[in-house]
Amino acid sequence: KSVREKDRPDFFVVGEYWKSDYETIADYLEETDFSLDLFDVSLHYNFHTASQQGSAYDLRELFTDTLVSKNPTHSVTFVDNHDSQPGQSLESFVDAWFKPLAYSFILLRAEGFPCLFYGDYYGIQGENPIEGQADNYLDALLYLRCNHAYGPQNDYFDHANCVGWTREGDAQHPYGMAVLMSNGDEGEKLMHVGSQYAGTTFADYTGNREEKITIDEEGNATFLVNGGSVSVWVQDGITPEEAFHEKDE
């Protein structure tokens, strides 16, 4: 409060209050006058459970009892941290196969303030070494967040094992995307990306699918995803420079 009153009214503060039930978190935020944000521990545990249960987990439950679903402007979302990694006091490390899905969830959606774990990006050394995933998928997801995760969001959480959402883009970032993930078999879903994309071709930026998909005149298309995987579809051939700048009138 003192820092903000002096010369930093927008000073960002995040707290680590390791509780996974929303009512306790809500009480904490109220007691601190909503002056700080909190790590979304419930979401982390949902990711961990989902990675452990595989196709038996209902992906529609990822939101259950999470701060990001109930108070997103105070939620700092994360997949893992230094305490949840193997061998540490709060060990609950998300299985490797589910990490791309979890990071897509926190990086490519509108809600929450995502936090990238150093160990996931650069790797972990010591008794429980883990290889960094920068080149495997994290750099691609970070690129997508910076260039395509803007505008209205349309959710398709209508199946236990295959869920997705689209971002339609905005004036400054006019090229949106469609995200589809599965924790079971190969899947597909009809989703709306916006009529402004009618007739254009979309490709999977992750490279997990090789097909090209054409958007219909109403701005819809049936997008595809491999089993136990995630695909992020963007307009084919768009460069970073184009994605960052407003279209010509």
Rank of each mutant, 00 (worst) to 15 (best):
A149G: 01
I124G: 00
N208S: 03
Y156G: 01
A102L: 03
P129W: 05
D155C: 05
T166S: 14
R109T: 13
H159S: 12
I124V: 06
T201H: 09
Y205L: 02
Y137G: 03
V193Y: 11
R145N: 13
D204H: 02
V94L: 15
P129A: 05
N128S: 07
K99M: 06
C115Y: 12
Y143K: 15
N183H: 15
K99F: 00
G132A: 06
N154V: 07
Y103I: 10
I124W: 06
I213S: 14
K189D: 08
R167H: 13
G169N: 15
G169K: 10
M177W: 07
L180R: 04
R109Y: 03
L101S: 12
E210P: 05
E127A: 09
A140K: 14
H148L: 00
Y121A: 04
H148G: 01
A140S: 12
K99P: 06
A171G: 04
T214L: 02
Y122M: 08
F157S: 03
R145H: 08
Y103H: 14
V193E: 11
L180M: 02
A110V: 02
C146M: 06
V163E: 01
E91M: 07
A140N: 12
H159F: 08
Q88S: 07
A198K: 15
E188C: 07
I106A: 12
D216P: 12
I130M: 03
E186N: 13
L141P: 09
L90W: 10
L90H: 13
Y156E: 09
P114G: 10
C162V: 08
L144M: 11
Y150M: 03
H173A: 01
Q133L: 03
K99E: 11
F157T: 06
